[in-house]
């Protein structure tokens, strides 16, 4: 049995070394021009630096190119892939087949991780993308633990699962914040607030608060709670899920660092002896609860929740 990779999302280059020390095995970085909902914006120089730092510490870096692309960006995918390849990224994350097609042409040796966030819902489709060239599939957040375990058992590709943080519920190409401000006649707000990440929608009926922000990829609405399954990792560890992701979007560097340490401890404990993890997991959960921002309740996402249709 091998330990799963602990994958985290740094906000800036400065976070790399501390996160390595905290126990991260790999990082997701990139820029919003190509990647979706990143914790931080890494321009090319930052990408090169982050990769150099991670590699010097024996860690991996995956560059996000998982946006939904329109024609206007198709031509530049090759150039960005060449760049990513030239700085020795360990993998590229894609959702749009245009990236896969371009990678076959200009960077055939580049590892690809398939991630659309919402559509990785069954093992067959994970393997389909594997046959098309992906080495890893990132599962949708909306499937449950049993389905994750079954998918891992049937998978011919690595399986990545988000274990912590908020997830995306919605992406529109429209400028929904800008449109609302314009509708209200608040022209200034459009420029002042549109790009900020401190807004949320209040759903009075459910008592939920959904973070909302805009960027190059449109408007994004995020989950009201943070997934946290620090105390429910045993089945996935047992099944050999390949990568556990902590998504740090809209969180502080300090929070990401602390959470990384706690998951590191959980994984290491389990591999030392599953009983040790069992004994200590409630305490680990309490540690996370202590640092959890007041406006972000923790829950177990869809791991133990059934959806109907």
């Amino acid at each position: 049995m091998t330990k799963p990779e602990l994958l985290v999302t740094p906000i800036s280059v400065d976070d790399i070394v501390p996160l390595v020390e905290a126990g991260a095995d790999a990082f997701v970085i990139g820029e919003q021009r190509y990647g979706l909902r990143l914790a931080g914006e890494f321009n090319r120089e930052d990408v090169a630096k982050a990769i150099a730092l991670a590699h010097a510490n024996g860690k991996k870096v995956y560059v996000a190119m998982n946006a939904i692309f329109h024609n206007e960006k198709v031509e530049e995918l090759a150039e960005y892939l060449r760049f990513v390849s030239s700085v020795n990224a360990d993998a590229v994350i894609f959702g749009d087949p245009a990236v896969l097609m371009t990678a076959r042409e200009v960077a055939p040796e580049m590892k690809l991780h398939w991630s659309t966030e919402t559509t990785g819902t069954n093992w067959y489709t994970c393997n389909y993308w594997g046959r098309k060239g992906a080495k890893r599939a990132v599962l949708a957040r909306e499937i449950n633990m049993d389905a994750i375990i079954e998918t891992k058992e049937q998978a011919e590709v690595e399986i990545e699962v988000q274990v912590h943080g908020m997830s995306c519920m919605f992406q529109s190409k429209r400028s929904l914040l800008g449109n609302y401000f314009e509708y209200q006649g608040k022209v200034m707000e459009v420029e002042n607030h549109k790009q900020q990440k401190d807004m949320f929608l209040h759903d009075k009926e459910r008592g939920n608060k959904y973070p909302i922000f805009e960027d190059d990829n449109g408007t994004h609405i995020m989950s009201p709670n943070d997934i946290c399954i620090i105390d429910e990792l045993q089945d996935m560890l047992e099944a050999g899920v390949d990568s556990f992701k902590i998504d740090g979007i809209l969180k502080s560097p300090g929070y990401i660092l602390a959470v990384t340490k706690i998951y590191r401890e959980a994984i290491d404990l389990y591999f030392e002896n599953p009983d040790l993890y069992e004994d200590k997991k409630d305490e680990l959960l309490e540690k996370i609860e202590e640092i959890q921002p007041a406006n972000r309740p923790l829950d177990t996402g869809f791991f133990f929740k059934e959806t109907v249709y």
């Binding site: 909306e142 992406q171 449109g218 059934e306 249709y309």
Partner: peptide, 15 residues
């Protein structure tokens, strides 16, 4: 974007 919305899953546990 169709296929990229799971509002119902989160708000009403409907897929």
């Amino acid at each position: 974007y169709s296929g990229r919305c799971v509002l119902s899953n989160h708000m009403t546990a409907r897929d």
